[in-house]
Amino acid sequence: MAVPGLETILDGLSTAPPEYAAIVALETVASIAILAVSLALFARRRQTSYLFVTAAFSTLVIRSALGLLTVFGLLAIDSHHVLEHGLDVLLIGLLFLAVIVAQRSEYANPRSNS
């Protein structure tokens, strides 16, 4: 008995060039590694700006997942592009928030120069 959806995955793989799957797999591994480092830094610092940066890096992992779904034929290319551009906007917004929060924190608690 076949696993439901397995035919769809195999059909998607047969139409996508093998390089696409390799590139998206590499992107996924790199995105997860970046997110892991970001999570470790946030756990150590416990600052809101680090939380926003970690959330921004999590969008990279979501983008990778969308890429995998597209390569496997489970997500239409049009949907992939719309969702990916939405994640780009979210990533930029989260990074802007991180900078704003970090600046406000620095102004509220200036460090001495000595």
Rank of each mutant, 00 (worst) to 15 (best):
P110Y: 09
T15R: 15
A76C: 00
L41Q: 09
P110Q: 07
V99Y: 06
Q103K: 12
T8P: 04
F57H: 12
A2C: 01
S14V: 11
A40I: 15
D11G: 15
A98R: 03
L95Y: 09
L74P: 04
E19M: 13
L68Q: 06
D78F: 04
D11H: 13
F52L: 08
L91S: 12
S38R: 04
T70V: 03
A56M: 04
M1G: 15
L90A: 14
Q47Y: 08
L51I: 07
S58E: 05
M1L: 12
A108N: 02
V3W: 03
S14K: 15
S58F: 10
H80W: 00
F96Q: 05
I100H: 05
T15Q: 14
A76E: 11
L41P: 03
I92T: 05
R46P: 02
L69G: 01
A25Q: 10
G86V: 00
L91T: 11
V99Q: 07
S49N: 14
N113V: 14
S58I: 00
A33L: 12
H85I: 06
Q103W: 09
L60M: 10
E7T: 14
A22D: 08
T54Y: 07
Q47F: 10
E106P: 00
V71A: 02
L35D: 05
T15I: 07
L6Y: 07
F96E: 04
L51Y: 05
L60R: 11
A102H: 08
E84M: 00
G67Y: 01
F72T: 01
L13M: 14
V99K: 02
R45Q: 15
A76Y: 01
S31T: 00
I9P: 14
L94V: 04
N109I: 10
V3N: 08
V29D: 13
T48K: 15
Y50V: 00
S112K: 08
T54M: 08
I34W: 02
S105Y: 11
G73S: 07
L39W: 03
D78N: 11
L68H: 08
A98W: 02
I62T: 14
L6K: 11
S114G: 14
Y107C: 01
R111V: 10
S64E: 02
A25S: 14
I62K: 11
I23W: 14
V71T: 01
A55W: 11
A33N: 12
L35G: 04
R104M: 07
L60T: 03
T48R: 15
L87E: 07
G67F: 03
S38V: 06
L74Y: 03
L60K: 13
T15N: 08
V61L: 03
G12C: 11
N109A: 15
S64I: 01
T48A: 15
L69A: 11
V61W: 01
T54E: 03
A102W: 07
E106G: 03
V99D: 06
G93N: 09
L10E: 15
I92C: 03
D88M: 08
T70N: 09
I100M: 05
Y50W: 12
D78P: 00
R111I: 13
